[in-house]
Design a protein around this nucleic acid. Sequence first.
RNA 1: UCCGGGGUCGUCUAAUUGGCAGGACAGCGGUUUUUGGUGCCGCGUGUAGGGGUUCGAGUCCUCUCCCCGGAACCA
Length: 562
Amino acid sequence: MEAPGSDPVERENADFVRELVRRDNADGTYAGRVQTRFPPEPNGYLHIGHAKAITLDFELAREFGGTCNLRFDDTNPDTEDTAFVDGILEDLAWLGYPIEGEPLYASDYFEQLYSWAELLIERGLAYVDDSDSETISAGRGGYGKPGVESEWRDRSVEENLDLFRLMRAGEFAEGSRVLRAKIDMQHENMQMRDPVMYRIRHEHHHRTGDSWHIYPTYDWAHGQSDAIEGVTHSLCTLEFDSHRPLYDWYLEQLPLPGDTPRQTEFARLELTHTVTSKRRLAGLVADGVVDGWDDPRMPTLRGLRRRGYPAAAIREFCAFIGVSRTNSRHQIELLESFVRQHLNRTAQRRMAVLDPLRLVITDWPEGRIDEVELTNNPEDPTDGTRRVAFTGELWIERDDFRADPPPKYFRLTPGREVRLRGAYLITCTGFEVGPDGEPTVVYATHDPESRGGNAPDGRKVKSTMHWVSAQHAIEGTAALYERLFSAEVPGEATGDPMDDLDRASRDLRTGCRFEPSLADTPPGAVVQFERLGYFAHDPRAPMLFHRTVGLRDEWARLQQRT
RNA sequence: UCCGGGGUCGUCUAAUUGGCAGGACAGCGGUUUUUGGUGCCGCGUGUAGGGGUUCGAGUCCUCUCCCCGGAACCA
């Protein structure tokens, strides 16, 4: 686990949020205090979109010497679960933001919220409405259309108090009554047309059990929870912009223990070829499109972790894209470039053949085994070397041999000399084909003087290829991934993202031949398969490697153009 | 339809708050290279449109256009 402080974010130009905090500090608004909060609802796992909010909330607090609370926004017992609480805690720690001590919960404030609700009733600012949800919705009016006041709006304080207490006691059926704030049914902002504060739910809550029969709505709980915790800067995404007047209105009516928090909205993170709606992600899991929340194709933090994305790369990406109020969709390639940049520096190199073709060195002495030394990481000399066995019978990549080479093909082809990485220069002398016309074995001779990969006469070859000794190879599986959604903006064409789902997005390659040292790769570790990409060892299944991201591939681009 | 928020290279994002429109990714070319990887060098008529203020406008005013969000007892 890496500490967030290990990669300090250098930003010459502050974003609008940091600018705002700086101004608040200059004005003495909160006496220089900066406190934020990250408020996930425990009804799903964290995804890449949350990572942006997390880094903003936690890093902002850190930069200004403040604190950031983790608060579970558990106001809706219908969908929430402790399994998600545990999962979120785990993902947060992995991302680099471990929570010290116990996390906070909105449900811890249910009693306080309740008494504040009675206070509003006593002041004539809230009332029990017996209408059903359709009636309430219809009464709200519409854009540019006036609202209609509920027939229950002018009940006496006593009656309201009485009914509200019976609601709490569980005397009424779900949906039969709600508590509403009495604000303004003609307000131009729909959120202010007497919003619902409490609804009746006879549902088991993951923390409070069966002790409550009424549950606060998001709007009634959020600002007050912020205030109770002493939050100064409450950051949320743009869709809550129209809720801000309501956030402020509630706080104005109440005797707050301290500072009045303020809400600031920013644009959520969207990525090409990706969906982040919790409903969609849950659907992918439920329909078996993916293996689970931690499927390496999922944009969840646990999916990205299993895929091999370093937490630091995700943090650096979030810091780099910054924060603004412009709706935007970042190209997934930018995130991938951060992943590559990080892995290039840190991942050890290994040789793995994913689509094996037999190569026989015809002039290799019978039974001879040569141990060659290979660098673990050319970007990091301190990472040392390893010894790999070389013999006269090898596996090479099927793509690395062509009987009839296209233009600019530098790899093995009859008559051509290439280098086997760290071993010898070899020259192709022939090949055999099977009934289908595909090569089954390639023959070559080697230059014994070129051990290590260089000939004494200094002659050059245009290609260096990876290989695995047939006698020493271990077998394994590699999972290659395409984007889960083929369209940049899933659903843009038809309105349904599932129309752009690529059901063949996983290409499972069994029978791969790996260099033996891969057996020692710790679960979860990421290595580079030379010339193929970065691969993460599955945390549970030995010898299963997930391709995190490929290498840039000039040859592939060249072929695509022709 | 009403209210609110936005619009800067292909994609994101900056511009000392009115003073040379810069960076990253992507792409293209070159170079280095025992990974067709990495590194290094180079390549850009992008301020949604019209009008105005000003010595000077991405920034201020004005009109227009386009995009996003908002009428759950979800968050």
